[in-house]
Design a protein around this nucleic acid. Structure first.
Length: 646
RNA sequence: GCCCUCUUAGCUCAGCUGGUAGAGCACUUCCAUGGUAAGGAAGGGGUCGUCGGUUCGAGUCCGACAGAGGGCUCCA
């Protein structure tokens, strides 16, 4: 049988040769290093015979990157289960896959038994014994009946359910006859594989956390105990990874926010930030940016009420679908609810006046305060809150205008992200199974979104049937410091609200027509955006956004008067500046300003007073020489006007 | 909402198997008047998240509640 190697040479092997044979045929060093082989990209155990029809063959070693890591992490998950089975008799096992940075295994512990990270040491010790014992992973194919019998006898209900599902979900034309089992030491698991040859290949591992996870990811199912861990080919790689996590934690916005005096939280209002003066300045700058950019793009700002009679929510459909997430109150016998979104208010506003086709598109924007009663367990710093505002807008247009409006939204969005150097991930979500509107309408609207993306040459991930029931959408995502993905922007087509609110415009034919609505946000919520931005910039806000742009640092008390003079001129020049009048050494004042990440530090002493200048020190850059206050203001103004980095 | 964990001074954290609270930073005052990341000294500050229980005695053990953290589900 002939196999093509990555370098293009062809390897001829006898029938029934295994992956290990292939590696050995290439070289003895490779045979020792081999973990698995990939045939046409499919990773297989070394011990398995190669597929008889040949193909591209690649030997997987620890240098193979993600594929190799996934292999030993999967191995580690099995070793974890091995240790847990031994230490906790009666435990039920479910699944244990490798994931992005590690692996997990889900268990159901016997009643009254719980596991916490305090138990990790004991579990890890047992795992280490199995790794040091160099136990081979042995694959065996058994009949479905035998596997069911085995796991039923062992009381492993979840494994039984998994096999039953495999049978049920299989192709009826070719019913599933066998499943594969992997054995390492005393442990045998239902597993598709592949695995490395033996447990010894796991060079370095660590259990990280324990969490609850619903069986099959369904909240109606029992909650299992998930143990997370990670594994690497060397202790050094593991240490590096853990250090990277630590650094990421230092850039967590929940740490940076209070540290930089931007915002803080209090248990008297869970899920709502208290914005300190410095943070409020940042927040207001972002609102100003959105306002300025919207003005240039034909948006008009509106203000709509916070509180609405329940009848409005009945009309919008929120009362049926979203009520438990709304804050509801009573007044004079009427049931009122605080808005969780601006759209119903904007529809109401649109419907209060008549509209001609000549006026479309109408683009209402409003940084309105929203409240959503998010479940307590989902709250997360600024990234998931109950009280927030969005750079929200609703566009009412004709069907013919959809494409151009969506394209304009994307232009708006990417012009915004560019200012911050954010690299967003784009998702296009199409029609869900349960939806309103006929398929021709969906065809057109999905095509409009797709064309808008294509015309800008933007790569996107298709999310089939993930659209809203009222229309398809484009979502724009960013990751936080720990790699978790959060939605910032969104562009959603909506045929539903115009219908429910009986929105109309008078067409050229002098009859009434239904407009289409586009919901769009770019930064998303200002709260979330600031959180993501802080993590992305490691707390170093650009000069135009910095709460304090410059701080004057007099060298000694006798320079305070000159400092006051400089400060006044900076304020006159529109610079957000402070003066450090404390009785401290200049070294100390510099250190404190550096820690506050203030972009410009202005040291003033005898020389500067004499020359009528300031000595400029830039955050992270150090001494930048002296210049006049006017020159400095000019420089700051330039950065602020074009919102450049520094 | 569900699972596990955590909650000690403004912040970061010590406090062994229960005997009655401690450090660094910050803050206040005083001295030093300093040239690019911490000058020195003294001092103030905590009903140990809340409520209840066990105990002669609870920051320390148990329970409930609240908030936070990591996940899961959810995010129309």
């Amino acid at each position: 049988m002939d196999y093509e190697l990555p370098d293009g040479t062809v390897l001829a092997l006898p029938r029934d040769a295994t992956g290990a044979d292939a590696a050995a045929a290439i070289g003895p060093g490779l045979a020792r290093a081999a973990l698995a082989v990939a045939i046409d990209g499919e990773v297989r155990d070394l011990a398995r015979p190669l597929p008889p029809d040949g193909g591209r063959l690649e030997v997987i070693t620890q240098k193979s990157g993600a594929a190799a890591l996934a292999l030993i992490r999967h191995d580690a998950a099995h070793v974890l289960a091995t240790a847990v089975m031994e230490l906790y008799p009666g435990v039920k096992i479910s699944i244990g896959p490798p994931i992005e940075d590690g692996f997990y295994y889900d268990f159901q512990f016997p009643d009254g038994v719980s596991v916490s990270d305090a138990d990790f040491e004991r579990i890890e010790a047992r795992m280490r014994e199995h790794i040091n014992a160099d136990e081979p992973f042995v694959r065996r194919e058994v009949s479905v009946g035998e596997a069911l019998e085995r796991f039923t006898a062992e009381g492993q209900d979840y494994k039984v359910k998994l096999i039953e599902d495999l049978v049920r979900d299989g192709d009826p034309a070719h019913p599933l006859e066998t499943v594969s089992l992997y054995t390492n030491g005393p442990f045998t698991d239902l597993c598709r594989g592949p695995h490395a040859p033996s447990t010894k290949r796991i060079k370095s591992f660590k259990l990280q956390s324990v969490a609850g996870a619903y069986w099959r990811g369904d909240a109606r199912n029992p909650m299992l105990t998930r143990i997370y861990g990670t594994a690497f080919f060397s202790a050094r790689d593991l240490d590096e990874y853990l250090e990277r996590l630590d650094r990421a934690r230092a850039n967590d916005h929940r740490r940076l926010g209070p540290q930089l005096g931007l915002f803080t939280f209090s248990e008297v209002s869970p899920g709502a930030a208290f914005w300190l003066p410095a943070g409020t300045r940042v927040y207001n700058e972002l609102v100003a940016l959105s306002r300025e950019m919207g003005l240039a793009r034909g948006y008009t700002e509106v203000k709509t009420p916070q509180l609405y009679d329940s009848s409005l929510w009945v009309t919008s459909g929120h009362w049926d679908k979203y009520r438990e997430h709304m804050f509801v109150t009573e007044s004079e016998g009427r049931t009122m609810a605080i808005k969780p979104m601006n759209c119903p208010g904007h529809c109401q506003l649109y419907s209060l006046t008549r509209h001609s086709y000549r006026d479309l598109p109408v683009r209402y924007s409003e940084p309105g305060l929203l409240h959503r009663n998010e479940p307590s367990g989902t709250l997360h710093g600024l990234l998931r809150v109950r009280h927030f505002a969005q750079d929200d807008a609703h566009i009412f247009c004709t069907e013919e205008q959809i494409q151009q409006e969506v394209a304009a939204c994307l232009e708006f969005a990417f012009s915004t992200y560019e200012i911050f150097g954010l690299d967003v991930r784009i998702e296009l979500s199409t029609r869900p199974a349960v939806r309103i509107g006929d398929d021709a309408l969906w065809d057109r609207s999905e095509a409009a979104l797709q064309q808008a993306l294509d015309s800008r040459g933007l790569p996107y991930e298709l999310q089939p049937s993930e659209g809203a029931f009222y229309g398809p959408k484009i979502d724009l995502h960013m990751t936080d410091s720990l790699g978790r993905s959060w939605q910032l922007g969104t562009v959603q087509l909506d045929y539903n609200f115009p219908e429910r609110f009986h929105l109309t415009f008078t067409g050229a034919d002098n009859s009434e027509h239904r407009p289409v609505m586009i919901h769009r946000a770019i930064m998303g919520s200002y709260e979330r955006f600031i959180g993501i931005l802080l993590e992305h910039l490691e707390g170093e806000l650009p000069v135009w956004l910095a709460p304090v742009q410059a701080i004057v640092l007099p060298i000694a008390d006798r320079h305070n008067d000159y400092g006051i003079d400089v400060l006044a001129r900076l304020h006159d020049g529109g610079v957000r500046a402070e003066l450090d009048e404390r009785v401290e050494s200049v070294g100390r004042k510099i250190r404190d300003a550096e820690l506050r990440k203030i972009p410009y530090m202005l040291v003033v002493g005898d020389r500067e007073r004499e020359a009528g200048e300031v000595a400029l020190r830039e955050h992270r850059h150090g001494d930048s020489g002296s210049l006049t206050v006017e020159a400095l203001i000019e420089r700051l103004r330039a950065h602020t006007t074009n919102r450049s980095a520094r």
